[in-house]
């Protein structure tokens, strides 16, 4: 299978005042299409930074970033935005739904960037809500849903435009165990049944156990994660 993600000698540093702090250093990563990869590591180790590079939300200082067939380090900001719309679905720890829109409208948002008609948009959004088990909650505002339900709406939004890659940053970090299991089950199902490629950051070894591969981010480098494999 072709590589969905291929990072070569990628470095990223942040400026903090006069200092420049390295976060990722000469990092290599390959993710095959159809994989469900869990990234683990201590807080502040650069997991979110890595996801942002993969999702085209920020740029590497050095190295090659190839995702879903595009060299992100070579795209203009405009092209990058279009590429994100086409290829990436994001799931955030705090769901990031727009509070003023109902679930249906939230899920429809990525479709506003496609050529689909109003009818098709509505239909696809409804289908995505059905896929996450919330077919009857389309008219609810985020504030009228539980955390787990909100995260599933967010997953529906991430999926609705049929992206190449799902990027999930601690998707269960804010959920109770039962809701977390539901969300993780859903992600695993998407990976197994719909062959979605998923890269998920998590603190929680139980969550990581749902993935097909686990890597550890530490001190700007990636390593195989030995400690959590046993938890499967």
């Amino acid at each position: 299978m072709a590589a969905m993600v291929s990072l070569r000698k990628v470095s990223k540093r942040y400026r903090r005042g006069a200092q420049s702090v390295p976060v990722l250093e000469s990092l290599d990563l390959e993710v095959e299409a159809g994989e469900f990869l869990a990234l683990m590591g201590p807080s502040g180790s650069g997991k979110t930074t890595l996801l942002n590079l993969l999702g085209g939300l920020s740029r590497a200082d050095q190295g090659e970033v190839r995702v879903a067939g595009a060299r992100l380090d070579q795209l203009s900001p405009r092209a990058l935005a279009r590429w994100r719309a086409r290829h990436i679905g994001f799931v955030f720890q705090f769901y990031n739904l727009l509070p003023v829109f109902n679930a249906q409208r939230n899920v429809e948002l990525p479709l506003l960037l496609t050529k689909l008609s109003r009818e098709q948009r509505r239909h696809n959004a409804q289908a995505a809500l059905a896929l996450v088990g919330l077919a009857d909650r389309g008219a609810h505002r985020p504030s009228e849903l539980s955390g787990g339900q909100q995260q599933r709406v967010a997953i529906a939004r991430a999926l609705v435009a049929d992206p190449s890659l799902l990027i999930c940053d601690e998707p269960t970090g804010d959920l109770d165990r039962a809701s977390a299991d539901q969300v993780l089950d859903l992600l695993r199902r998407l990976n197994r049944e719909q062959n979605k490629t998923i890269v998920m950051v998590t603190h929680d070894p139980r969550a990581a156990a749902y993935a097909s591969r686990r890597l550890n981010v530490d001190k700007g480098q990636l390593g195989d994660d030995a400690t959590t494999v046993a938890a499967t």
Partner: peptide, 14 residues
């Protein structure tokens, strides 16, 4: 801020 950034992440243009 967060909502605008979320829309931008989804692919909305600046």
């Amino acid at each position: 801020t967060v909502e605008i950034a979320t829309l931008r992440a989804i692919g909305f243009g600046g």
